[in-house]
Design a protein around this nucleic acid. Sequence first.
DNA 1: CTTTGACTTCAAGTCGACTTCAACTCCTAG
DNA 2: CTAGGAGTTGAAGTCGACTTGAAGTCAAAG
Lengths: 143, 143
Amino acid sequence: MTVTTDTDALLSIGEVSERTGLPTHTLRFYEQEGLFAGPVRRNAAGRRMYSEEQAHWARVCTKLRSSGMPLPEIHRYVALVREGPGNEKERFAILREHENKVAQQVADLQEALAVIHTKVEIYEEALSAGTADQLWRDGPTCD
Amino acid sequence: MTVTTDTDALLSIGEVSERTGLPTHTLRFYEQEGLFAGPVRRNAAGRRMYSEEQAHWARVCTKLRSSGMPLPEIHRYVALVREGPGNEKERFAILREHENKVAQQVADLQEALAVIHTKVEIYEEALSAGTADQLWRDGPTCD
DNA sequence: CTTTGACTTCAAGTCGACTTCAACTCCTAG
DNA sequence: CTAGGAGTTGAAGTCGACTTGAAGTCAAAG
């Protein structure tokens, strides 16, 4: 539950960096790439001060990125947000499509995992049976 | 297509490419990077002829790669295989460690998926309730 | 007052894994 | 014989997403 926008404690770039795990350089880079819907405010000394919401969005961005959404597509989404109400369906489509892609990625990764695990098991068995040298006969037969 | 399915059923680079989904260029590149334990043989005309085993290994490579194993690490594994029997434990360690990494990747991806899905659900609800415009109040509150 | 450390800008460099290019050779079909 | 398609080589280019560098500003601590 988000509180009202009045008494928001603003966060320095270092604080946001700590919370998100993103290097400060990367936060500046993201801003430059237009990954924040609103402007990042500055204090009297010209330093960046992030709202809680912006910090949260940065955290979301780490998830979008780590799941393979390219920066331009995040930008596309943000651009729609910036435009204001009226394009929610488009925004939804971007998110849902990415969700599908990630689900596919998980499936692919699990398939790869199965292949790898098969090989691991073969080694486990051969090693405990002391027949590991037979894993090499006339080529990498080990599958 | 050259129909030589006689003796050891060697495969052309094009056939291996088709089976693995790897472009022929990439197969040559992998060979150059030392990703095959044995030599890739050549026919009279100097063209690559892969054994079934090599084709299979290439397929395994696609899984290792798609799960993020770097080429140098695949190379390290292959180098051990090339050395012959005696280092099975090391080979096993490489595989098992990668297996763990992939399991972690799956977990991370599922976490990201959860975050994304949460946002998707918020949009779904707001859209069906006709309150989508409220997703934008005074910032991207939508989480 | 000086140092420390976080911050600022803009520009250039890095990385892995291909991918593309250029310039061939070779085999088979028509 | 000629065209087409598959194959060969080494070198150079591409890509996204940072990352690093250079050169400076600012605020509080010792």
